[in-house]
Amino acid sequence: MPTAAPSRVEDAVNRRRGDLIELSHSIHAEPELAFNEHRSCAKAQALVAERGFDITPNAAGLDTAFRASYGSGPLVVGICAEYDALPEIGHACGHNIIAASAVGTALALAEVADELGLTVVLLGTPAEEAGGGKALMLQAGVFDDIAATVMLHAGPIDIAAARSLALSEATVRYLGRESHAAVAPYLGINAADAVTVTQVAIGLLRQQLAPGQMMHGIVTDGGQAPNVIPARAEMRYAMRATDSESLRELESRMAGCFAAGAVATGCEHVVTEAAPAYAELKPDPWLASVMRAEMVRVGRSPVGEDVEAALPLGSTDMGNVTQVMPGIHPIVGVEAGGASLHQPAFAAAAASASADTAVVEGSIMLARTVVALACDDAQRERVLELQKRRAS
């Protein structure tokens, strides 16, 4: 390993500390929803554009996706930036931290790209919360030349080899017939009742779920007036499982619950599946071990490997990426006073001093992990060989 490379990337991050924190705070201050992250997308590109990265906008035909490349080495490493927020509660998942740390990692690696034979690719990946930007970009070939991909996520604790659950979503629409609820209720077919029957069926199914399976949903349309039998009702459900095979089993059982509401009430029903589904994270063991060592080096206390395996955290379209190439999605702890992801208190914490530390240390840890990959002949050859097989 070029002995100066790890310290050079660390120094590069520290030099840009102010810029990276400013970027994190700026994205946090203007939260934007999936596929509409126009300001955040532009902000994420600005620093790497100044550094001379070659930027391809609208990657995969997505308005708020981009690919920014630096260097010409044979080892192509991707760094994913997310920047979408949540409805009403803003950056309660800390995607501003993800974006800023990804930019910091890319800027740091640009300093050593030539000597390490790297091509550094910063990927702006929209719509992680809903829409699967990475999965769409993967399908469109944006990742085809990339040998390994890294990113990090904020959370309440430090986890080097983070796992996630496979996820799919479905919208269920019930169609009945209107009638006056008092004068002639017998002439109506109640779509809202179909939703009720379905939710009861789902509630009863929970007792028989396999470990790791879960579902949660909302009613998005339940009628407009109490004195009109609703002819239309709609619900949206997310289904999760430990892996994609278990998810498919759950989807089949949920389909029976959706149908039950229609059968019981005489409604018609239409199920529309959201695409793409999210696969479970498959962290690369070697990259995760390097990341764990980096966490310890900077004074963090990552959970043990036994805890990692038993603690899948939500779902992410980064799972789709790690199913086809080596990658990691570590969790970097942010002090949030006991709050967890998708809570308003975590949104506030995502612009705190602890979050700023996560941006800087996260950038350093990811950059040094990539440097370790580039400098380990056996591991470098491993990921290059896997990429070659994917391309053939």
Results as ranks from 00 to 15, higher is better:
residue 285 P to Q: 04
residue 91 H to T: 00
residue 201 A to W: 01
residue 28 H to S: 05
residue 342 H to G: 07
residue 110 A to R: 11
residue 233 A to D: 04
residue 152 L to I: 05
residue 377 D to K: 08
residue 62 L to R: 06
residue 304 G to T: 06
residue 277 A to C: 02
residue 36 N to P: 00
residue 232 R to F: 13
residue 292 R to D: 08
residue 80 C to E: 10
residue 282 K to M: 12
residue 315 S to L: 01
residue 71 G to V: 01
residue 145 D to A: 13
residue 189 I to P: 14
residue 233 A to M: 04
residue 343 Q to A: 08
residue 123 L to T: 02
residue 348 A to V: 13
residue 267 C to V: 03
residue 110 A to P: 06
residue 157 I to V: 15
residue 340 S to C: 12
residue 380 R to H: 11
residue 381 E to I: 00
residue 78 G to K: 03
residue 230 P to V: 05
residue 171 T to E: 14
residue 53 F to N: 10
residue 187 L to Y: 14
residue 334 V to Q: 01
residue 99 A to M: 10
residue 198 T to E: 11
residue 350 A to F: 15
residue 327 G to E: 07
residue 75 L to D: 06
residue 369 T to P: 09
residue 232 R to C: 08
residue 89 I to R: 15
residue 107 L to C: 04
residue 264 A to H: 11
residue 47 L to T: 00
residue 197 V to E: 07
residue 69 S to E: 15
residue 230 P to G: 03
residue 75 L to S: 07
residue 144 D to M: 02
residue 59 A to F: 03
residue 368 R to A: 09
residue 205 L to R: 07
residue 98 I to A: 12
residue 334 V to D: 02
residue 244 S to W: 11
residue 286 W to C: 05
residue 203 G to Q: 08
residue 12 A to E: 14
residue 17 R to Q: 13
residue 153 H to Q: 03
residue 51 R to Y: 10
residue 188 G to N: 10
residue 43 K to N: 09
residue 354 S to Y: 06
residue 9 V to E: 13
residue 48 V to E: 15
residue 7 S to Y: 02
residue 302 P to C: 05
residue 81 A to W: 02
residue 58 N to P: 01
residue 311 L to P: 01
residue 22 E to C: 04
residue 357 T to H: 13
residue 284 D to K: 03
residue 386 L to A: 12
residue 138 L to C: 09
residue 224 Q to W: 14
residue 348 A to W: 05
residue 321 V to S: 02
residue 56 T to H: 15
residue 271 V to I: 14
residue 354 S to T: 05
residue 359 V to R: 02
residue 306 D to P: 01
residue 387 Q to S: 09
residue 189 I to S: 14
residue 43 K to S: 11
residue 73 G to K: 05
residue 311 L to W: 11
residue 133 G to F: 10
residue 88 E to S: 09
residue 374 A to E: 09
